[in-house]
Amino acid sequence: MTSTPDRSAVIRDSLGVGIATGLYGTSFGAVAVTSGLTVAQTCVLSLVMFTGASQFALAGVLAAGGTPLAAGFTALLLGSRNTLYGLRVGPLLGWTGARRAAAAHLLIDEPTAMAVTRPTRSLARVGFLTTGVSIFVLWNLFTLLGAVAGEALGDPRTYGLDAAVGAAFLALAWPRLADRTNQVVAALAAAVALGLVPITAAGVPVLAAGGIALLAGVLSRRPDPTEIPEPPR
């Protein structure tokens, strides 16, 4: 990204990010149906929830044997970071009324990242919309493809798809793990979750690990601008 990109450069970059991100809807579709969701439920998640980490989390908690309530709550907790993105890009995008309500659906990692760096409102809107719309279309299309393929495969263990779920979470966390404090938080959260697995119902360990975020937020001193992970290439 240059400091003063023109419109077509912004569109080109945004489409690149949109395509790369949309394609991995395949992995969500495949993982979701092997976690016990139907193809219809998987597709509704991509259409309505439309925020990757929350969708993967809902499927992951179900796959581990958690209740639908625990799965939904984990998804909501992960969705809370989109609120922060909105606070950052809202004034920059400057939409109101119905446009704002529509734009809100696209408020996820990548469109935010492709908007915040723009020098003008018009370029920010182009980056946000091009990235958001291209992800939405492709993410839903490839979710359906992945879900249908995943269902045709049968037992997920044969194809290692149960290992793919953990890999997906690791890949989603990766851009945030360069930071030292985040590494400590991640290690503590993983330890708390594993410690709770034998003594609590499935789904509880992950939610309880959210307590580490609470603790770290209160104890940490670092000045902290909202983190927006770098979009995929």
């Binding site: 966390a173 793990l177 993983a190």
Partner: peptide, 19 residues
Amino acid sequence: ERIADFIPVALLAALVAVQ
């Protein structure tokens, strides 16, 4: 803001571990 930033890291790490 710090808590909200730590939530994805903590939950995703816990999800990796459990998975």
